[in-house]
Write a protein that binds this DNA or RNA. Structure first.
Lengths: 248, 248
DNA sequence: CGGATCCTTGAATAGTTTCAACAACAGTGG
DNA sequence: CCACTGTTGTTGAAACTATTCAAGGATCCG
């Protein structure tokens, strides 16, 4: 699975009571806020501030003081861990509605940065943690999300520890099919690849060159179709991808 | 194989004060139960059953119905994910006080099994989830643990995706120093290696042979000392291990 | 147009796995 | 008691996979 997003428990809202910004928020339906009634939500609204970041910007550096957390309103972010000598591993991707930040930690251990222009609803971490205490439904929602993220992390550990390059690429593409797949005219599935080759490599624990070579091979064998400079592709052989991911 | 040695403690609940079983529980101090007062804890006690498992026993198979969760009272377990063709990756280790199980999932995706003789306090998952709802302090404790497990998983993703064999071994040994290290006479640190070479390999995403070779090399270079058949070793060069883990 | 970034491809290299053999040890049963 | 078997760990050699190093093409934007 590619995403931490979890759709559940959509509390019906009563129009007219929630602050205007929250009412109009695109992420409201599947963010932590979904757990809050219109009355409750003003507690979060009171401490939250909207912030727009351009693509490629860092929200928080590993090692810095961990003062802020946030909800993704629109856009995408990556969470990266790195070795001292600069090797990077993307340990998570964040989509609208996802929670951003490491709670209960004085210093950040991970770097969070935007993959495209992104809107966030940010909160001071301390204030957010206090709000969490007062709203068990929100805490429950966060628990479920965290459990989902943990499940995700564990399935990626299997990929990083035990799958070869071709299998990792196949798994990644199949995740994208699930998340962004749209039927294409020729019976294939059109998917968006929202990140660069370099970021794919950082996500999959490979090098840029290996990613490029594997994609070229899939193209040559007719499983995949994509044009140069195209951030997306058409999956023509979904079944064959599954066969690669799970060899006999 | 031995027949399933399964011991059930059916101590009746004593309302009002902590049940005797819980009072005497070795894990009480650092498990979820630590969040509960003596009165509260009887709610958990009411649904909990003690269970002893011998080493090498499976608590729950991936794919099976996910009906039970537990707290580790004594012993150790491993959580493994596997590919369809049988490659295994240990995605977590569990120690006394740790929570066992995947909440809010109908079917288990991971296999949990004992690494040594282990005592658990098991709960029916549904009943546990209900109890969780009634006890926000317990839920908060579980959230913190889950966040910690996620942080752990992410640092292991970095290791699996970006570190070579020697670095993974060094990191693993340093973790053990932190967790089980005892000063040894000669200025070194004595650590227990609680798992077999094969399990180390499954944990680190390597093969048995590579683990064995790397350990032999560390021994040859005087960083490590261990005898054949010894499930433990003495770290003589902790600083040199750190230098391996974080090369310039 | 020039420079920067991203992607692709080739050749050589290095690191890990695979395959194979063997030693040490525990438990089993004759 | 001793062979027999299965498990665990070690070591060597060969094979393979992914990385590293290197070069060139494509695209975008000033």
């Amino acid at each position: 699975m590619l995403t931490d997003a979890l759709l559940l428990d959509r509390t019906p809202t009563v129009p007219g009571c929630a602050p205007a910004r929250c009412q109009a928020c695109k992420a409201r339906g599947n963010s932590l806020c979904a757990a809050m009634g219109d009355g409750e939500i003003s507690a979060l609204h009171a401490i939250g501030r909207r912030r727009s970041l351009p693509a490629g910007q860092v929200f928080n550096w590993a090692g810095d003081q961990n003062n802020h957390c946030a909800t993704v309103v629109e856009g995408m972010l990556k969470v990266t861990a790195s070795t001292e000598d600069g090797r990077e591993q993307i340990v998570g991707l964040l989509f609208p509605g996802d929670f951003v930040g490491e709670l209960f930690e004085e210093d950040a251990t991970l770097t969070v940065s935007t993959l495209c222009d992104t809107d966030l609803c940010t909160y001071p971490r301390a204030a957010f943690e206090r709000t969490l205490e007062d709203h068990p439904r929100m805490e429950r929602m966060l628990l479920r999300r965290t459990l989902a993220a943990l499940g995700d992390a564990r399935s990626r550990m299997l990929a990083l520890g035990r799958r070869n390059a071709k299998e990792r690429i196949a798994g990644f593409l199949l995740d994208l099919v699930e998340r962004t797949g749209q039927p294409a005219g020729n019976g294939g599935v059109r998917i968006a690849i929202p990140i660069s080759r370099g970021e794919m490599a950082d996500y999959l624990g490979l090098t840029i060159e290996t990613v490029s070579r594997q994609l070229s091979q899939l193209k040559a064998s007719g499983i995949l179709a994509f044009a140069k400079g195209d951030r997306g592709c058409t999956v023509l052989g979904e079944e064959r991808l599954r066969a690669i991911l799970n060899p006999a």
